[in-house]
């Protein structure tokens, strides 16, 4: 019995499911839930630290709670941001432009995530 119902033309064009849509959908929402928890803590942290200037911000990151909130936030945020950018890029661009933009989104996300993580660890470890 035939199990492949696709026409020869559709197979040649390569259209169809990439099989990873469910993973993208769930991962986007799981990271969203992590952000929904950490964003209020982050805003509160910034507002509580700002009056103290440099010392205020450093004190917040030197506390393990502050470092944990920030590390969790930047990790989830860059993951979620790259996931969302990927979605938009796939909607509006094709071909080489699409590939280039996807690559830029990935490299920028990883680069600035690492910058944030290293900076947080440097302050936290220096405490």
């Amino acid at each position: 019995m035939a199990t492949d119902f696709r026409t020869p033309m559709s197979r040649v064009k390569g259209h169809g499911s990439a099989q990873d849509g469910t993973h993208h959908y769930i991962a986007h929402r799981v990271s969203a839930i992590i952000l929904a928890i950490t964003v209020p803590l982050l805003i509160w942290g910034i507002m509580a630290s700002a009056p103290g200037g440099f010392d205020g911000f450093v004190e917040y990151i030197e506390s393990t709670f502050g470092a944990l909130v920030l590390l969790t936030f930047v990790t989830a945020a860059f993951y979620h941001g790259r996931s969302g950018l990927t979605e938009s890029i796939l909607d509006y661009f094709q071909g080489g432009k699409r590939m280039a933009l996807l690559l830029v989104a990935t490299l920028v996300s990883i680069g600035f995530w690492l910058l944030a993580v290293l900076s947080i660890l440097r302050i936290w470890l220096g405490a």
């Binding site: 990151i61 941001g81 969302g84 600035f112 910058l115 290293l118 900076s119 947080i120 440097r122």
Partner: peptide, 23 residues
């Protein structure tokens, strides 16, 4: 929602730079 998501990605870059300046 889409526009704010893209704007927030740019804000994340600024936040990373801010933390780096702090460090």
């Amino acid at each position: 929602h889409r526009a704010s998501g893209i704007a927030l990605f740019l804000a994340m870059i600024k936040l990373s730079i801010f933390i780096a300046v702090l460090a």
